[in-house]
């Protein structure tokens, strides 16, 4: 295709949008509604996943050593643990630290009760590594590995919490794929319908073009340009609205439920969310606009 023809197709595509204002508006609204819903869903999912991830970071595995183990072997075990990909943090807790933490937790307000045990640490053999995971679904494989290490006496894990969080994450993944799939299918269907109506309106023009000797590519090009532009505008407008809405909602929740936001509700910054959502939405808008017009035209251009 010649450059002048590309220019002509772009110009005609833009003109077509304005010639058929109502159809263009309907298409933009359809696309906008779908991208808006998709965007809301995306914001909820990424924040939810982030909250689950935050909760996961609190899940730890403790590794205790056999009696009489030397410090050199403890360090070796620590090095081996840190090399594992699923480990995000590995901290050595000495017997003294363990006793001090225990006192803080269980003798809070009654510190004098622990005073009698001052020179006799009841947790003398409790030095251990406290391991935090980057992915709780890998806890079991890590525990099996840790149990196989020489010098390890016992491995404590929080199986239920890890399993629940892991399953929850998988569930969110499936639900996301399902809902996004449905929304995309609805978008393609609606865009395709508006393109069919657009073709019906310009059926005579297309027929004249065919009889004059226009190639299919030449006839299709303005429609595809139109589809792409509608797709881009239809995804751009809801992105602006979503950005405003996201900041407002996060601000509202953080102000209204300040206690919860410190412990559980930690929201991702809008810059992070939209750095993913903007390219995704524009790509979807462009893709649906292109595919919707391209395939619908192919089906209806046999003049």
């Amino acid at each position: 295709m010649k450059i002048s023809t590309i220019g002509y197709s772009v110009k005609q595509g833009i003109k077509n949008i304005f010639r058929n204002k109502m159809f263009s508006l309907a298409s933009v609204a359809t696309m906008g509604a779908c991208i808006f819903l998709l965007g809301i869903f995306f914001c909820i999912v990424v924040n939810f996943q982030n909250m689950v991830k935050q909760a996961e970071t609190g899940v730890s595995v403790s590794v205790y050593f056999v009696k009489g183990i030397n410090q050199e072997r403890i360090s070796e075990i620590g090095d081996l643990i840190r090399k594992r990909v699923e480990v995000s943090e590995c901290r050595f807790v000495s017997a003294e630290e363990a006793w001090s933490d225990f006192q803080k937790d269980y003798f809070k307000g009654n510190e004098d009760l622990a005073a009698g045990l001052e020179d006799d640490n009841p947790l003398a053999d409790s030095e251990h590594y406290e391991i935090f995971l980057s992915d709780v679904s890998m806890q079991n494989s890590l525990v099996i590995y840790l149990q196989s290490l020489e010098g390890v006496r016992q491995v404590n894990k929080s199986e239920m919490v890890a399993d629940t969080l892991s399953n929850f994450n998988v569930l969110i993944g499936y639900v996301s794929i399902g809902i996004i799939g449905i929304l995309l299918a609805v978008s393609v269907f609606l865009i395709s319908n508006t393109v069919i109506v657009g073709i019906a309106v310009r059926k005579e023009e297309i027929a004249i073009m065919k009889l004059i000797g226009a190639t299919d590519v030449f006839i299709r090009a303005p429609f595809v340009v139109e589809g792409i532009l509608i797709g881009l505008v239809g995804s751009g407008i809801p992105l602006i609205l979503l950005h405003i809405l996201y900041n407002e909602v996060v601000e509202f929740i953080e102000g209204r439920f300040s206690t919860l936001t410190i412990q559980f509700l930690t929201f991702l910054p809008s810059s992070y969310v939209f750095s993913k959502l903007i390219p995704m939405s524009l790509a979807i808008g462009l893709g649906i606009g292109f595919l919707g017009s391209f395939f619908t035209l192919r089906k209806h251009l046999k003049v």
Binding site: S4, T5, Y8, I208, I212, G213, A214, F218
Partner: peptide
């Protein structure tokens, strides 16, 4: 239009 359709130079 008839000339544009067959990609005649401007």
């Amino acid at each position: 239009f008839a000339q544009r359709v067959i990609q005649t130079p401007g």
